[in-house]
Amino acid sequence: MLLKGIGFTLALFAITIVTSIPLGLGLTFLANSRIKPVSLLTRAYVLVMRGTPLMLQLFFFYFGLPFLPYVGKYLIMDRFPAACLTFALNYAAYFCEIFRGGLMSIDKGQYEAARVLGLSSFQTTFRIVLPQMVKVVLPAVANEAITLVKDTALASAIGISDLMHYTRSLVNSRAEVTPFFFAAVFYLLFTVLLTRLFSRLEEKFKF
């Protein structure tokens, strides 16, 4: 049973990471857009997602959306998709902020050299800027990933049968505390594993 819970936890983690990072990158470009309304709107979005509790956002997307007038009935989602969507949108905002900082750290001489060599802005972004940005943001992304491991436990609040959910029901039904320790060890191992993975990545991006 706990294994099934771990499955949900891992799935939520994986889906959030692979969707929120590209989404965050997209938001970064929008936030830096020269079209003022686009960048203002994006920044407002990031502010709201980072400035309100993830738990509140979960409740909003799962319980709240269906109550919206007119469109509500089309916005009824199952628990798991609702959780994935919320996590992706929330983490994308955090990643956007991290990537924006990373972009600002790139020396403007890099853009100038690329331009003088005749590279297009697309080529400059993908061959010159992003690889250097990755190096800068990796530590912050690692932190965010570790936070996400623990945040997945929030999904149990809307009734998703993740590790936290099963742990709690086991503790209740058996009246013993060991499941808590089991869960703690799992989260801890996961975190340690991620930390090692990221330090290996950082090693690769040393230049």
């Binding site: 020396d107 001489g109 890099q110 100038e112 050299a113 010159i128 690889p131 250097q132 190096k135 230049f207």
Partner: peptide
């Protein structure tokens, strides 16, 4: 050629 070289460090 720039004063600060502007090589691509990666």
């Amino acid at each position: 050629v720039f004063q600060h070289f502007n090589l691509f460090p990666h």
